[in-house]
Amino acid sequence: MLFDKILRPTMYRLGHNDPEAVHERTVRALGALSRLPPALAGMRRLYRVDSPVTVLGLRFPNRVGLAAGMDKDGRALSAWPALGFGFVEVGTVTRLPQPGNPRPRLFQLGETDAIINRMGFNNAGAEALAERLATNGTPPVPLGISIGKSKAAALEDAVADYQASLRALYPYADYFAVNVSSPNTPGLRALQDRGALAELLAELLATSADLARNADRSPTPLLVKVAPDLTDDALAELLDVCAEHGVAGIIATNTTLSREGLATADARLAKEIGGLSGRPLAARSREVVRFVHRHTGGELPIIGVGGILGPREAELMLEAGASLVQLYTGFALHGPGLVKRVNRALAGR
Rank of each mutant, 00 (worst) to 15 (best):
V339D: 08
H293F: 14
L338R: 00
N179T: 06
L257A: 08
I303G: 11
A177I: 02
L300S: 04
P186C: 00
I251W: 06
L201K: 12
A39T: 10
L200Q: 04
A114S: 10
G15I: 06
F87C: 09
F121Q: 02
A322G: 08
R259S: 04
L338D: 03
G335W: 08
M43K: 03
S181F: 00
A67K: 01
F107N: 06
P37W: 05
A243E: 12
V159A: 07
I251C: 13
G69A: 12
R284L: 02
E287G: 15
F3H: 10
R132K: 14
R349C: 09
F121L: 10
G297L: 05
K72R: 13
V55G: 15
A29D: 07
R312N: 15
S181A: 01
L276D: 08
A168F: 12
D157R: 13
F121W: 07
M70F: 15
D266R: 00
A173V: 07
P19Y: 10
G84W: 11
R294I: 11
T94N: 04
R132G: 10
L222K: 00
L143W: 05
L191T: 07
E24K: 14
L169W: 14
A67E: 01
L56M: 07
P81L: 00
V49Q: 13
A82K: 09
D161S: 06
S146C: 05
Q163C: 12
I251H: 10
K149W: 04
L129M: 02
I303M: 05
D18Q: 07
L269S: 15
R25D: 12
V289C: 00
G110S: 08
A158L: 11
V141C: 04
V141P: 02
G274R: 10
L58Y: 07
A263M: 05
V288A: 05
P219D: 14
D157I: 04
R213Q: 13
A76Y: 07
Y12C: 14
